[in-house]
Design a protein around this nucleic acid. Structure first.
Lengths: 111, 111
DNA sequence: ACAATATATTCCAATATGGGAATATGTCAA
DNA sequence: TTGACATATTCCCATATTGGAATATATTGT
């Protein structure tokens, strides 16, 4: 068997750094493909391909506007990731608390 | 070029569903490899390989205990993912609010 | 030292990938 | 209709992957 497909779910789609950058950019505003090409400084097929992956998992959606295709983020598709990670966040928040306690202790000269 | 390596960062490491399952299991308690083998019902090399990837990105750490190697989750390595996703969570929380408004409206007979 | 146990590593095959280059498709404007 | 523009798709390569099977490497108890 091979690796899980990038189009399998949002987890796989956002593993690629370029696709995260794309999402960050599109979160600010909707953009056409060529606008993305200019902003990201990638070639046009690369932009289209990465958008294609994001579209397949529903992370972006596309609206036709004449010759243009305007893409926007569908952030709700990030919720499964949010929820999956959130179930563990206490595990590091607590550690951070302990670190703060420790630093306070040092501060008070009890270190 | 090929796909981003699974060992490149936590994003890539957790894209694989089996590795997420592994993290979920280890979050409950530390476990030796063979304990994981029994719980997950995967063969032993598969467990070791997936643990290897998670270890390389720091998502799990390993403690030697005689013949055993006890693995535990290092959830702090999930924080970059948490933070990346969190910057977008308003985008779906707001939508949810709007949905609730909409449902309220229907409830009041204004739909 | 030896047998048994625990774990890691290697070798293999099939497969999907990201990027580049070229090309195809679609759509407007004159 | 034609040319210009906007976008998508195809073909290619090099590479890393997952899983299975087999094997290697600890480490322990006797």
């Amino acid at each position: 068997m091979a690796r899980t497909r990038t189009t399998y779910d949002a987890f796989n789609a956002i593993a690629e750094p370029k696709r995260r950058a794309l999402i960050e950019t599109l979160a600010i505003q909707e953009l056409s493909v060529n606008e993305i090409v200019k902003i990201m400084r990638w070639n046009q097929p690369m932009v289209s391909k990465h958008l294609g992956v994001l579209k397949q998992v529903g992370l972006v959606s596309e609206r036709k506007d004449g010759r243009y295709r305007v893409y926007k983020v569908n952030a709700a598709e990030l919720k499964p990731i949010h929820d999956w990670v959130a179930q563990f966040d206490q595990l590091w928040v607590n550690r951070l608390d302990h670190l703060e306690d420790y630093l306070d202790k040092i501060q008070r000269g009890e270190g």
